[in-house]
Design a protein around this nucleic acid. Sequence first.
DNA 1: GTTAGTGCAAACCTTTTGCAGCTCT
DNA 2: AGAGCTGCAAAAGGTTTGCACTAAC
Lengths: 172, 172
Amino acid sequence: MAAKSIKGSLRERGVRLTRQRKVLLDLIDKTGLHLDAEQLYALAKQQDSKINRVTVYRTLNLLKDMGMVDELDLMHWSGGQHYYETRLKQEHAHVICLRCGKVEEFYGEPLQKIRRQVESHFGFQVLIARTEVGGYCPHCRRLRSQEIHTAAGKVRQDSAVRGRRRSVRGKG
Amino acid sequence: MAAKSIKGSLRERGVRLTRQRKVLLDLIDKTGLHLDAEQLYALAKQQDSKINRVTVYRTLNLLKDMGMVDELDLMHWSGGQHYYETRLKQEHAHVICLRCGKVEEFYGEPLQKIRRQVESHFGFQVLIARTEVGGYCPHCRRLRSQEIHTAAGKVRQDSAVRGRRRSVRGKG
DNA sequence: GTTAGTGCAAACCTTTTGCAGCTCT
DNA sequence: AGAGCTGCAAAAGGTTTGCACTAAC
């Protein structure tokens, strides 16, 4: 989608369009996916087995600095890593289920309102705004109420949310 | 402010109020400050020179899991670390200047609106919502336009924003 | 042919873990 | 007394850096 126009902008700005960058750009741009550096690396390797993880990070930083991708945390759902998406014209919030990890995108005027209000209240020049909402999706909501009924009482077992953090990563 | 009531809640829940936890609780609760683990550690050491960095992390996780503090990213202004504040009744967004790091807090109905809309649109049960806005404060806005005039042309010098990341930490 | 970009290895920063010993209640 | 906490050392997870080589323009 946006990948083509991004490539154009890069060229204009005198940034070299290497084989690796093309691969990554296309992957990030598969709209709807919010991939982290590691996932991007894994997918990129399928197309270019020689690509290095460092190149992934460097490319992400380049695109971020040029304002072509946005970096998300997704409420640190599965650890400390970041997720990336091509910057869309339309501002949106990310709604993430803290149990299953499902991500929804929320478009709505309150988002633009915040932007405008911050500009007028504080005289800030707003460059980026990020809203993330965490909770339980309809499906997990039901499952959770069952869980609570069955395993009632265990108050502060190490929280399920943090428990999910340790990500599984093959050694490369 | 809230430190006293938090201590009460902890006691009620059977969590031990150790010397270390009291120190940290009081530090986090100095309202208005958004400290990261390392800063908290440094300050705590002034009051209890034996305290360990690990205890800081464990305490922060405890308070987070119990819903007593909120974890912020502040747009990763100075690196990958997190910042903490005691959870206030009133939801608010954080507005951060990407040049000087100044943080403002924005209270406003658009925030509650997002929450409600996400609940009705997606059927999500919202637990946390986080909005962060990055840009330039009035002061830095002025300074920046000067900078641009003087050093015009240098398009993609490693971005000032990321350049500020490497944090200075004594090997303490 | 230049100069930007890549791969590799090694560092770095932030956070977590395992375990023995200490301390709140 | 005893479960809950702490400190220490060590590891893990994610990301960045230095440098020699390679490839895009």
